[in-house]
Write a protein that binds this DNA or RNA. Structure first.
Lengths: 204, 204
DNA sequence: TTGCCTTTGTGTCGAATTGCACAAAATATT
DNA sequence: AATATTTTGTGCAATTCGACACAAAGGCAA
């Protein structure tokens, strides 16, 4: 039985994984909590404690064998598989996301995309034909897609969210600049560049 | 003298501001910590305590007068002005950012954009002509730009970052999927959709 | 005015998170 | 084989953070 792991620890794991995959790409096979910590800007003790929530992945005196640790983290984060993702809203941001090449080796692939604009529906973006958002519920449910990226204007975000939740989506990456209301069983992560920038200017 | 305010509180302020601006746009002039908390998914007590770090902005029995609180938050976050922002890397993401219309009423405007690809340099994106990244240091320094959005591939991110820091940039919103190393005086915020998605799939 | 209702700002406390330090384990060296 | 070196995993202490509760203040109704 898994002890419930604090959110804040879970939120750091993808950062570790990203750094490890980068090291692996550079041909490095072993690292220490010290070295990894310097790369990601987190203390070595913190990293060791975070990882120890899930098992003993390192070896005293040697550190961590990177391919092994990557496998473990991918399993923990459930990205030891490829998740289909649906993208809603084919503005500039939706386009950029659908065409982005960086998802596949991190556990995700775009499976379909939607818009409500009749001029856009039917058009091609990358390998995909933009579908009518009226078919969103049906298509998402039938395909069993569990993860969505929401790129619609703020005023439509909540209504699309409700449809997604209804259709069985369990997680939403929200690019719309608005907070979403969802059941507890659904996880939301927010991406809002203006909020990121405002968190910066406070310190300048 | 301002007591040092915890990062975690600062990071919530832009979320409050966004919700308040939305309420204001909808013609609402007054709210309570209770109501605001429901909108952003944070407890009322938390909101009151966060705001009390900076002053007494509410009135017992009535709550908060939204235009006043917006002004206060904008001043605290230093977005009671418009910050020039430089965008580096004119791929799909850079394009989407430069063309995004949502920054101006939240304190930011794109001032210039750069790429290293000779085919892209000189081309028009929105109202801007793509400049040669070789001129980055000079142009940024001369214009006194303090904030950057980094949209280059991961392998170039650190070297561009170093140039930006050297040129006087104090904050970077990093879209590249890699951790950056910067002096303490420079603030970085990360936007990586794959990390957002991995934080979601853990819970599914 | 008086009494009732609402809502803030904050003191207190418990919980969550982080930092520190070290025994134990593994490797490297002599 | 014995010693030195490295680095993990973790117990404990310190700090940070969030929930709760309530006095005080303002508004409203009669």
């Amino acid at each position: 039985m898994t002890e419930s792991v604090p959110d804040i620890i879970v939120s750091r794991l993808p950062v570790y994984l990203r750094a490890l995959q980068r090291m692996s790409d550079n041909g490095i096979t072993t690292t220490s909590s010290q070295e990894l910590g310097e790369k990601v800007g987190i203390s070595a003790a913190q990293i060791r404690k975070d990882l120890s929530q899930f098992g003993e992945f390192g070896k005293q005196g040697t550190g961590y064998y990177i391919p092994f640790l990557i496998d473990k983290l991918r399993a923990i984060l459930k990205v030891d598989r490829i998740w289909d993702v649906v993208v809603i809203g084919m503005g500039d941001m939706g386009h950029a996301i659908v065409r982005y090449q960086g998802f596949s080796n991190r556990g995700f692939q775009v499976a379909m995309c939607f818009d409500s604009d009749p001029d856009k529906i039917g058009q091609q973006v990358g390998n995909f034909t933009i579908r009518d958002v009226k078919d969103l519920a049906k298509d998402v449910r039938e395909a069993g897609v569990k993860v969505a990226m929401l790129c619609v204007p703020a005023r439509f975000a909540q209504e699309v969210t409700d449809k997604l939740v209804e259709s069985g989506v369990r997680g939403i990456l929200n690019y719309a600049p608005v907070s979403l209301s969802v059941p507890e069983s659904v996880k939301v992560q927010h991406i809002d560049p203006a909020i990121g920038l405002q968190r910066i200017t406070y310190y300048i």
